[in-house]
């Protein structure tokens, strides 16, 4: 750890003289500390948050692998094809949130708002799609307790869905800010960390799909 951190210690040490900032400070651009500090904190915080989320899913994965190899009652679940369609939606939303970010960086407000709306819509569509998948499974008599594989299916999709819902909330907040013409350059950090989170949720979904379809 120290070996990794130590080379950067010069710049680490010099920076960050300011202090803490909370959400309200985003509006006060210019009166605050070097904007870099706040941006860096938020990026660090987001990466750490993603690390924590990864540990949760890592634990679920190990439980999944152990449980599937353990007993003779494991019947692999038939994955509804709609899941792949949902994955496509999420993948597209990753592209559009990148467009949002680029547009904001370039100061193209209308374009930014446009892509922002598309991303949010895609996110909501994904969640609706996931609900449809659940309904499909339920209509085939596959519930949480039907089989350990279905328990894990619902567990993983629900946990991912909850996290994505958090992302959608963040997007709605940004939309609301944009609606009120408050989405200035100072909001870049907010959009940026949301984009990081969003991409991560995208990758996480692909990971879950691969786990469910390859380790049966």
């Amino acid at each position: 750890m120290a070996e990794i951190l130590a080379p950067g210690k010069q710049q680490d040490g010099v920076g960050g003289g300011g202090g803490g900032f909370h959400e309200g400070d985003f509006g006060g651009y210019g009166s605050g500390p070097p904007p870099g500090t706040s941006r860096r904190i938020y990026r660090t915080g987001m990466w750490l948050g993603l690390l924590a989320i990864s540990m949760v899913f890592l634990a679920f994965t190990s439980a999944y692998i152990v449980r599937s190899g353990l007993s003779d009652d494991w019947l692999p679940i038939e994955l509804p094809r709609l899941l792949w369609g949902n994955a496509l939606l999420l993948f597209l939303s990753s592209l559009t949130i990148e467009r949002t970010r680029k547009a904001l960086n370039g100061g193209r407000r209308a374009e930014c708002n446009h892509w922002l709306a598309v991303t949010t819509a895609l996110g909501v569509a994904f969640l609706v799609g996931q609900l449809l998948v659940w309904r499909q499974l339920a209509s085939h008599g596959v519930y949480v307790t039907t089989n350990p594989s279905s328990s894990f299916f619902y567990l993983l999709t629900a946990t991912h869905g909850l996290h994505l819902l958090g992302g959608v909330m963040a997007l709605l907040y940004i939309v609301w800010q944009a609606w009120h013409y408050q989405l200035g350059p100072a909001k870049r950090t907010l959009v940026e960390v949301t984009a990081i989170y969003w991409h991560f949720m995208d990758g996480l979904w692909i990971y879950i799909l691969l786990l469910l379809s390859l380790w049966r």
Binding site: D12, G16, G20, T37
Partner: peptide, 13 residues
Amino acid sequence: ATTLDLRAKGMYL
């Protein structure tokens, strides 16, 4: 995050 990003000038690790 606080330890990584908010150290005073000269507060090397």
